[in-house]
Computed example of a mutant assay.
Amino acid sequence: MANETTGQPTRFGYELLRDHVIPDILGKHEDDILYWAGKEIARKFPVFSVDEVPQFFKEAGWGTLVRVSSGKEEIDYELTDRLESPATEDAFSLESGFLAEQHQIANGCLTECYGSRDADTGRIVLQVRWDETYNLGD
C-alpha cells in the first residue's frame, strides 16, 4: 500500500512484509537469512565510503544511524527513528549484515556485526568488529 499524498510505501505495507510474510517464509532461519540478505544488499549497493552508510539507512527507511564510538578494529553505531512493531522490535539481522559487508568491502578484512537492544536504555546498538589478521586480499 502507498500513501495517497506522497506515493511512498506506508508503514502498514512495510509491517506486512517484515512482520508476517518474511517470518512465515523463512521460519527458524530468519535471522541467519536476513543477515546474509543484508550482506547481499551491500554488495549490490556499495557505498564509496562507510561515511555514506547512515544516508543509505535513511533512504532505505531503516532508521537513523549514528556512529557513537570507534577503535582500531571496531565501530559502534546507534540506530534510532526505526519503524518498529512488536515482531521487529529486536530484529536487526538485515541491518547488521549490511553494515558488516560495507565495512568488509572498505577495510578488506573479515568483518561481522552484532545488533542488540540495551535492556536498561532501550537503545539499539550495532557493533561492527573486524580482524586485521584475516585480510581478504591476501
Score class of each variant (00 low, 15 high):
39 K>G: 12
39 K>L: 12
41 I>H: 05
42 A>N: 06
44 K>R: 11
45 F>V: 12
45 F>R: 12
45 F>W: 09
45 F>D: 10
46 P>T: 05
46 P>C: 05
47 V>P: 04
47 V>K: 02
49 S>I: 08
49 S>K: 04
49 S>D: 09
49 S>Q: 02
50 V>K: 07
50 V>H: 00
51 D>A: 11
52 E>F: 06
52 E>T: 04
53 V>F: 03
53 V>S: 00
54 P>K: 00
55 Q>W: 08
55 Q>L: 06
55 Q>G: 06
55 Q>H: 02
56 F>Y: 02
57 F>Y: 00
57 F>C: 00
58 K>Q: 11
58 K>S: 11
58 K>P: 02
59 E>K: 03
60 A>L: 03
60 A>P: 04
61 G>C: 02
61 G>M: 03
62 W>A: 01
63 G>Y: 03
63 G>K: 02
63 G>A: 02
63 G>R: 00
63 G>L: 04
64 T>C: 01
64 T>F: 07
64 T>E: 06
64 T>Q: 05
65 L>V: 08
65 L>C: 03
65 L>K: 03
66 V>Y: 05
66 V>A: 09
66 V>T: 13
66 V>D: 10
66 V>W: 01
67 R>P: 07
68 V>R: 07
68 V>H: 02
68 V>C: 09
68 V>A: 12
69 S>A: 10
69 S>R: 12
71 G>R: 11
71 G>C: 10
71 G>E: 10
72 K>Q: 14
72 K>E: 15
72 K>D: 14
73 E>W: 12
73 E>Q: 15
74 E>I: 15
75 I>V: 15
78 E>Y: 13
78 E>K: 14
78 E>T: 15
78 E>I: 15
78 E>S: 13
79 L>V: 09
79 L>K: 02
80 T>M: 08
80 T>D: 08
80 T>A: 13
81 D>F: 09
81 D>S: 11
81 D>G: 11
82 R>A: 04
82 R>P: 06
82 R>L: 02
82 R>S: 07
83 L>T: 08
83 L>G: 08
83 L>C: 11
83 L>I: 14
83 L>Q: 09
84 E>K: 10
85 S>L: 07
85 S>P: 07
86 P>L: 14
86 P>K: 08
87 A>G: 06
87 A>M: 11
88 T>M: 05
89 E>S: 10
90 D>I: 13
90 D>A: 13
92 F>C: 01
93 S>E: 06
93 S>I: 03
93 S>K: 04
94 L>S: 00
94 L>Y: 01
94 L>E: 02
95 E>I: 06
96 S>M: 05
97 G>H: 05
98 F>K: 00
98 F>H: 01
98 F>G: 03
99 L>C: 00
99 L>T: 00
99 L>V: 00
100 A>D: 02
100 A>H: 05
